[in-house]
Design a protein around this nucleic acid. Structure first.
Lengths: 145, 145
DNA sequence: TTAATCTCTATTGACTCGATAGGAATTATG
DNA sequence: CATAATTCCTATCGAGTCAATAGAGATTAA
């Protein structure tokens, strides 16, 4: 399961992706639109900025904006930034590989092989799905309903 | 990530699947072979039994055995039994669906659509991979290395 | 100079996680 | 029947994580 924090991050980023234009958006406004507790959102945005997903302007009339094109921000990027690796075990993580401390032989580990498949399947989806896609899909869906 | 508990469960079940025969295997022996702390394993096996994945015999010369054919025990079954739903959010879980408390409209939620795809992809893999497959693959691999 | 904004770190309470402990219930065996 | 071996069950522990709040510091526009 995603953490609440990660879900908040996704909501906030979609709000930012919909807020087109180059002018930054204030934390308070993002918080309201995305329905995220203001102070908690602050921490989240900070982390996303450190990961390069967001840029910020400080001081008066400051705020946040996307750090790159919504086409280049995938769900995988966001989830990894907040919750860490997508993999079900450290030994099958591409971004944070770590050998199992008690693993006898990685090559014959039956569990590892399966978790690897699972990781690839999830990563394929989450890396291909971007903020741009999410926004477009949302607009299409809201026209329909 | 899987919990340690879930990883232990997978190891223990593979040990049990390899221990052919109808006679039960004692907790202590499973613990040793699977390298799981004995008392912790006790709790794990208990949960797996309540889920129907294992059967047990009590008293002297008691022990644990698989509750059904290794072909019918999937990784998904095991992980769900110990860690809960595979889904990344309650609103996309098949086995434990729960509406997002603050969701405005599920039909237009861009996040939900993506998480649904991710869930399906993982579930497809984990439901198709069984204990029987894992054991077979392990034997093949150990002959090769 | 001031007000508005982001930045950073600490703190809190509730909960989860991994692990251990110990007694109750059950069963085989001599 | 008595005993030993085993699973069953629940409680407990310390460490860590999670969601959220707080507040002082740094930066900038007006």
């Amino acid at each position: 399961m995603l953490s609440q924090k990660a879900r908040y991050a996704l909501h906030a980023l979609i709000v930012l992706a919909e807020h087109d234009g180059d002018e930054p958006m204030m934390i308070a406004d993002i918080a309201e639109e995305a329905r995220v507790p203001r102070k908690f959102l602050e921490q989240i945005l900070l982390e996303l900025r450190k990961r390069g997903i967001l840029r910020s302007l400080r001081g008066r009339s400051g705020g946040y904006m996307l750090g790159k094109s919504p086409r280049d921000i995938s769900f995988a990027d966001i989830i990894r930034a907040i919750d860490g690796p997508l993999a079900l075990a450290p030994c099958v993580s591409v971004t944070a590989y770590q050998r199992c401390e008690d693993c006898v032989d990685e090559n014959t580990c039956a569990i590892r092989k399966v978790l690897m498949l699972a990781r690839d399947a999830t990563a394929d989806i989450l890396e291909s799905q971007t903020l741009a896609g999410a926004v477009a899909r949302r607009h299409r869906a809201s026209r329909k309903h």
